[in-house]
């Protein structure tokens, strides 16, 4: 419980660590989703062009 309380600064300390973790996770997920989206769009376009040939 002492570790959670952080000498009455628990709310400040844990919120900082929580926000940091959330922002890093969101940055990673957004980067992965963007890559998948771009890859998929290019894949669809190229395969459509190949089928037309």
């Amino acid at each position: 419980m002492d570790a959670m309380a952080m000498g009455n600064y628990g709310m400040y300390v844990w919120s900082c660590f929580g926000i940091t973790l959330a922002v890093i996770l969101i940055s990673d997920v957004r980067a992965r989703l963007r890559h998948k989206q771009v890859y998929r769009e290019i894949e669809v376009r190229i395969k459509a062009l190949e089928e037309r040939k």
């Binding site: 890093i24 940055s27 980067a31 890559h35 771009v38 890859y39 290019i42 894949e43 190949e50």
Partner: peptide, 29 residues
């Protein structure tokens, strides 16, 4: 971790910019 995030985003940028090139077409196919 910044380096990993940057590398991932650069890959996406490169892929988008090179989307009409032969190497991207060959890689996807």
């Amino acid at each position: 971790v910044f380096g990993a995030l940057l590398a991932r985003r650069i890959r996406t940028e490169v892929l988008y910019r090179e989307r009409r090139t032969r190497w991207v077409r060959e890689m996807i196919l």
